[in-house]
Structures are given as C-alpha cells and as structure tokens.
C-alpha cells in the first residue's frame, strides 16, 4: 500500500513538474519568477534586479546575456545603443556587477544565439552564455 502511495505521489509530482516547466518558461509565483530553468540551470541573474526589470512586462521574450569585458559604464554604453536600434527591443538592463545584459524582446522576435553574440561583439565584448525566458 505504501509503495502504491509513493508511486502515485511520485507520478503526480512528475506530471505537475511537466506542466509547470514546458520549455524555458518563467512562471510567476507570488510576484517572483522561478530561479531554475527546465534544463536544470539556475536563472543566472540578481533576483531583485530581475524582478524589477520584468515588472509591468508581458508578452515578451527575455534574453539574459552573460558578457565578458563589460567592466565600465562607458564601454558598456554601446551595448544599449546597439540593441535599442532594434524596434523589437522593449527594454534593456545592464548589470555591470554581474556581467549581465537583460533584454526584453517582443514575442514575435526570434532570439538567436548568433545574432546576440554578433551584437555584443560589435561593441568589443564577448558573450559567454545566453538564457531565454518567455513571460
């Protein structure tokens, strides 16, 4: 009987987990986004800063870009300028402390690793990682 109960509980939790994480989606729980993605990787951002960023945003795809060489305000400024030329970019945040650039794209925009990497490189920095969330 115990085994049956455990199997039932385990199956239920798997189904629930599947429903909660169908793809790389962020789902709000009491105002906070999940900090773990479906591939097991943590959402690599400052949680408070990220919550502020996504506040009042909806129907967007968010790119979280890890950038090497973004050590000063003056040298990171071109990154904002480059991305804001794209009409699909709704909002951008540069986190110098953690080497992150967070970009909100309109849902219709397909985000590709190569395009983001190219734009970061055009400013003279290197992209090392990209995470994408749907909100």
């Amino acid at each position: 009987m115990k085994k049956l109960l455990l199997i039932t509980l385990f199956s239920s939790s798997l189904i629930a987990a599947e429903n909660d994480h169908s793809g790389m989606h962020g789902h709000s729980h009491e105002g906070h986004l999940h900090e773990t993605m479906v591939d097991g990787k943590g959402l690599d951002v400052n949680p408070e800063r990220f919550d502020m960023f996504v506040k009042e945003l909806s129907n967007v795809n968010i790119a979280i870009v890890s950038v090497k060489g973004m050590v000063c305000d003056f040298c990171a400024r071109g990154i904002s300028k480059t991305f804001l030329k794209d009409k699909n970019v709704k909002k951008i945040d540069v986190d110098l402390d953690n080497g992150k650039v967070v970009i909100a794209f309109s849902k219709s925009k397909e985000i590709t690793y190569s395009e983001i990497e190219k734009k970061i490189l055009s400013n003279g920095q290197n992209m090392s990682d990209l995470q994408i969330l749907e909100i």
Binding site: S66, K68, G69, V71, C72, C75, G99, G124, Q125, S128
Partner: peptide, 12 residues
C-alpha cells in the same frame, strides 16, 4: 587600431 583585447568577466 585595436591590436589586442582580452575580455574576462572581471577585466578588460
């Protein structure tokens, strides 16, 4: 001309 650049998470 930029002859060489080394980017890391903490430095350039």
């Amino acid at each position: 001309y930029l002859v060489n650049r080394k980017n890391t998470f903490k430095s350039q």
